[in-house]
Simulated assay, not measured.
Amino acid sequence: MNQIRMRRFNNTEVCFSLCIGDEGELLMMDSDVSPGLHIKLLTLVLMLCFSLLCGFSPVCVMRRASRFSSDPGSRHRVLSLASCLACGVFLASCLLELLPDYLNHMRDTFSHLRITLHFPLSEFILAMGFLVVFVVEQMLLAFREQTSDAPHEKQALMDSQDRDAAPNRRRRSVSWSDGSPSADDGRSHVGLRVFLLLFCLCVRAFLEGLSAGSRRERVLESCVTLLLYEGLVAFSLAVRLTHHALRRTLLAGALPLFAVACPAGIGTGLALDGATAGPQVQLVRCAVEGLTAGIFINVCVLGSVWQELGSPKHRIHKVAFLLTGFALVTAILFSKV
């Protein structure tokens, strides 16, 4: 079967296909091509590569610096300042993007359903996400205290020399965070906070990619902004994971998982092009956004920011780096206007 194709561009791209069958019949088929499809596909590939590059770059730099540098104090100071920069990025992402988008989606959803709420449902979902982290952490700490009763009893039977050496070993174990007294408590459930941080960022990246994949206006501007924003978040995530001194296998799994989240959202948005989500789907999405926002507030503000700024060393420098990260996200979000 021979095919003759003609393409005409007039605001929207239309493809005409002329098919000549065996009996000489002339058939004409037309199919609409979504505007900006090539830009979205290119963004999908660039997003994956750029996120992996921004994610693994600080990990490789810190690994190489720790190998060639003989001063552990300077490495910890640089890593702490970079972690404050990441905290500023997460704080701005939460306060300037995640919360406003969630509240707007909730308001638009209930306005579309013509439902008037007399109860602060949006704030209640947000509080539930915040309290989930708090309750789970307290349960883990209570379980840890119960399981540590036996070691305390054993320590009471130690001689005086071993008891005097135990506090010194504990002080050396927390020296990695500039002497912060809360660091030892934070490492007892650091795995939970790392998992929740990765979960929130992946969910947010997937939803951002889903919105970008289904967008029909200002495709190029939104894709470029999303590319820069996801690269900055990938860099901040890598810094936070490196700051927690995780194993290489966990880093090698966490960073690609985040890098795939946004392209997966873009691909899903392209696959669902033209399909409208029902009210049930919109309500589920709003609930997920609210719980994610509440979890992110707890993990970011109470976990990362409070831990970093709780150390008495280099307070002014840490505040400056935190404000720098906040300003970077603000500049990227301002470019959307």
Rank of each mutant, 00 (worst) to 15 (best):
L52N: 00
D149P: 06
L98D: 01
P151F: 06
C202A: 05
N298A: 14
I332G: 03
L79E: 01
V61R: 05
M6Y: 12
L27I: 09
R193T: 11
L126R: 00
C94R: 04
E23I: 06
L228E: 05
G269C: 10
R75D: 04
V78M: 06
C15K: 14
M47C: 10
L53K: 12
E23M: 05
S335I: 12
F110M: 07
V284T: 13
R248C: 05
E289H: 10
V219A: 06
C223K: 01
L257F: 11
S17Q: 07
C202T: 03
C300L: 02
P263T: 04
R8C: 13
K154P: 05
T276R: 15
V239F: 01
L91I: 08
T109E: 07
P35N: 10
P181K: 13
R171C: 09
L157H: 14
M106R: 03
R144S: 11
L207M: 09
A261T: 09
S311R: 08
V61H: 02
A165G: 06
R5F: 15
D164V: 15
R114Y: 12
R171T: 05
L257E: 05
A165S: 11
A277H: 12
R114V: 14
L96G: 05
C262G: 01
R7W: 11
C19Q: 14
R144Y: 09
L140M: 15
V133D: 00
S17G: 05
C19F: 12
D108Q: 14
Q138K: 13
A261M: 08
I39N: 03
A92W: 03
A65I: 10
L53W: 13
V78D: 01
T12K: 13
S175F: 03
A82D: 00
A271N: 13
R144D: 10
R193C: 06
D149L: 15
M62Q: 07
V288A: 08
L53Y: 15
T147M: 11
A320V: 07
F326Y: 10
F235H: 02
T324I: 06
F16C: 10
S214W: 02
V288N: 04
L309N: 08
Q282R: 11
H189S: 10
P58T: 07
L302V: 15
L232E: 01
W176M: 07
F90I: 03
R8W: 12
A183Y: 02
A271R: 15
P120W: 02
E25R: 05
K40V: 03
A165T: 08
F258K: 00
N11F: 13
C223R: 00
R187D: 03
C262E: 02
R187W: 07
D22N: 11
A261E: 02
V305Y: 02
P120E: 05
F9I: 15
M6L: 15
V33E: 11
D178K: 07
T147A: 11
G267F: 11
L227M: 08
L196K: 01
D22T: 09
K154H: 13
S214H: 05
V59K: 06
V132F: 15
S148G: 11
L26E: 06
L197N: 00
L81V: 03
H38R: 12
R315C: 08
K336W: 09
S31C: 09
L121F: 07
L53S: 13
G303V: 03
L333Q: 04
D159C: 14
L96M: 14
S311H: 09
L250C: 03
R107A: 14
N2C: 12
Q155K: 14
S80T: 04
S311W: 08
L91M: 07
N10E: 14
